[in-house]
Design a protein around this nucleic acid. Structure first.
Lengths: 246, 246
DNA sequence: CGCTACTTTGAAATTTTTCAAAGCTTGTGG
DNA sequence: CCACAAGCTTTGAAAAATTTCAAAGTAGCG
């Protein structure tokens, strides 16, 4: 089994701080690689391919997915500009990554990264730090998928997509993926996704802006719908109350 | 945001191979630490605690979970003997870990690991390799959670719990967790879990053996129910067929 | 302009959740 | 050693939500 990464921009201040002036950084490594363009619908690599390259996404959005035996598709995540892609300790990619929009990536052969990181331990550190964010993101998705109602899932999804942008009332977020992509990401049917978006728009919580963006109107309602993740010191108490334990 | 790990035993041959004779290994580090016992229901650490230690589970089973604002609990994973626990690059634990059965752990202060791993790059490598398995496990859980029907989820759960054991007809797997734990792990209600187990037992696919173990009777049916993950080269085709794309 | 692919909507069927209550197990105290 | 309490599990029935099947509506592209 191999390590698979879809690593987001490090939201980690320490990672940025450790970027010493002269030493090669993760991004400086990629900067020297030429840009490859990938058309919408084309794959960067396939599940099962030998994992020989690491990619940095320069532009565009992609989907990472697996297809199950029964033909269903499970989208494990969306990959955006600034994300790393396809890091794997060895072996094969665990999922297919496909462009949703026109995409630009830089490719770095894995063996090259490996030999460099041997001499430059801080490169590994940076990668580790990215992994940090990645594990956190994976866990957040589990929480999202654990939600029972369609409204909660969609609300959580919109907030996830709004991450990294200034969150203000009326902010518009881009949704380059199709409704089917969203459905396969959240584990629901395309019809339920569509109906739920319609419903949320009807409530005035969001407003659709064309097919591929929505405006977040009432953030409070959205956060409330999403169940407001953790951050509550009295969580244990609340849980006990709910299940009438003691 | 910090890295959080619940790392399984490496199923990775290379990791074992790189365990050179004289150099300290991950497990040799922990071996020198004294064993701490944790009673069922007690926490090893809490979500939000400063992440000062890494733990190795020697014995028993634990649950890693978050509590949402609305009081719901989401179980992010079950932790078993041989797993590492609480690795975090810095900052705070992202979830609470609580013993289900009587548990034994060894504690290693994080700063100790950090200073050691600076001198011993291969320690980092081992950790990285563990991360490998962890990311794969996280993705597998996403796939599990994406499933729509209760039967699929349970079937997938049983197969997950059977991992690492010889899979033969009639094999018995231990389920030390409660039905509520399973429900919170799979994102369903305790009643649905109970009903589904009853139904699967009625079909002869499994048989309950007391409260905390079940026998897997017809593996084929179980795998079929679980949707049989990937491994199918014609996946793309199957998917296209399903959605009538070209 | 007319495909083609994507999205929305409708209605029935199915599944899951919810609310309620009864059945088991286990451990403790009499 | 039995009885009881507490916690966990199972079962039932109604309510609610999602899925499924079907069809109509839209948007973008050649």
């Amino acid at each position: 089994m191999s390590l698979q990464l879809v690593v987001g921009q490090s939201t980690n201040p320490a990672a940025a701080a450790s970027t010493a002036a002269d030493k090669p950084t993760l991004s400086s490594l990629f900067c020297r690689q030429s840009i490859e363009r990938i058309a919408p619908g084309s794959a960067v690599f396939w599940e099962g391919d030998a994992a020989k390259n690491i990619f940095e996404v320069v532009e565009g959005t992609l989907r990472a997915y697996r297809i199950l035996n029964d033909g269903r598709r499970v989208i494990l995540g969306f990959v955006r500009a600034g994300d790393l892609l396809g890091v794997s300790l060895r072996g094969h990619y665990l999922y297919t990554v496909e462009a949703i929009t026109p995409v630009e990536v830089r490719r770095l052969p894995k063996h090259r990264f490996d030999s460099l990181s041997e001499r430059e331990p801080h490169l590994n550190e940076q990668l580790f730090s990215k992994l940090c964010d990645e594990m956190a993101a994976a866990q957040d998705q589990m929480v999202l998928l654990s939600r029972r109602s369609a409204e909660e899932k969609l609300a959580g999804f919109f907030l996830l997509m709004a991450r990294g942008q200034v969150q203000k009332r009326g902010m518009i977020i881009e949704l380059p993926m199709t409704r089917l992509d969203i459905a396969d990401y959240l584990g629901m049917t395309i019809e339920t996704v569509s109906r739920t978006i319609t419903k949320l728009a009807g409530c005035g919580v969001i407003a659709t802006v064309g097919r591929h963006s929505i405006a977040l109107l009432t953030m409070n309602a959205l956060v409330a719908l999403a169940g407001g993740e953790l951050e509550n010191p009295s969580f244990q108490e609340a849980y006990r109350r709910r299940h009438a334990m003691a």
